[in-house]
């Protein structure tokens, strides 16, 4: 099964009405949902069950068929029980554990020493998945922002300058530990006419980033309030994780 994002969303909007009907509807719609969630789920599965790394695709396929299509699993996706992504990972974990139990019945028990690892702890499971999810959100946000800024139909070359300034002023220092270019370097490189011009260019970049981040998240979180909550939740999670080193 292909593991490509959909054309308009890497995560489908958590449309509970759609999900409720999903088990009764055609396989094509379900296929879209499954493909959209494929990558983060695969990362979660491989991080949670490293010994099953080589079977990840097969297990996900089985999960999709058994849970999402045949068993009316989507009907049980209930918004009141929490975020849809949490429901996804819990279901996948339970599915894989069930699979392991069935395998154990067929084969002699394996001791923990033979496994060479401890059973995964709940906190780690959640963090691996959430980190993969956050990475996917941010990568998609930056991809869309760059494409937007470099779009020939937009105000060029100013729009491209916005991306470039964002890249050298913010992205490169954050991700490559590059030194921030000096203010004088910026005005020379981009022909900035005044500090207001420089500031407006950077502010525009931040706003475009924020707009795309909101859009990416809204595509799976749904409504504006839920989007704002999800943005805060992801940020809080990353801050918490970073404090632990």
């Amino acid at each position: 099964m292909a593991s490509e994002p959909s054309k308009s969303s890497i995560f489908p909007r958590t449309d509970w009405a759609e999900l409720g009907k999903a088990a009764d509807t055609d396989v094509v719609r379900l296929d879209r949902l499954i493909r959209l969630y494929w990558q983060p789920l695969k990362i979660f599965l491989m991080a949670t069950f490293p010994s099953l790394k080589n079977q990840a695709d097969t297990l996900l396929q089985d999960f999709a068929e058994d849970k999402l299509i045949k068993e009316g699993w989507l009907r049980r996706a209930d918004q009141s029980r929490g975020r849809f992504r949490d429901f996804l990972k819990t279901s996948l974990r339970n599915f894989v554990l069930d699979h392991l139990n069935r395998v154990e019945v067929k084969n002699p028990p394996i001791s923990l020493e033979d496994l060479e690892q401890d059973p995964p702890q709940p906190d780690n499971l959640s963090e691996e998945f959430d980190l993969a999810w956050a990475r996917t959100v941010l990568a998609e946000t930056l991809r869309r922002m760059e494409a937007d800024c470099k779009n020939p139909a937009e105000d060029q070359p100013r729009r491209s300058y916005i991306w470039e300034m964002f890249r050298i002023r913010l992205l490169e220092p954050v991700f490559n530990d590059a030194a921030q270019p000096s203010y004088d370097q910026l005005i020379e490189q981009f022909g900035l006419k005044s500090p207001t011009d420089a500031s407006n260019t950077l502010l525009s970049a931040k706003r475009i980033f924020k707009a795309h981040l909101s859009k990416v998240i809204k595509e799976y979180a749904g409504q504006d309030a839920a989007t704002a909550t999800e943005i805060q939740a992801l940020e809080d999670f990353l801050v918490r994780l970073s404090k632990r080193g």
């Binding site: 956050a134 941010l138 930056l142 913010l170 490559n176 990353l238 801050v239």
Partner: peptide, 20 residues
């Protein structure tokens, strides 16, 4: 940017999120 995000630790990702 995709490669940069996927190889980075939480601290850098948090900094990026705060950018907005």
């Amino acid at each position: 940017s995709s490669a940069a995000v996927f190889k980075s630790r939480a601290k850098k990702l948090a900094t990026l999120m705060a950018t907005g």
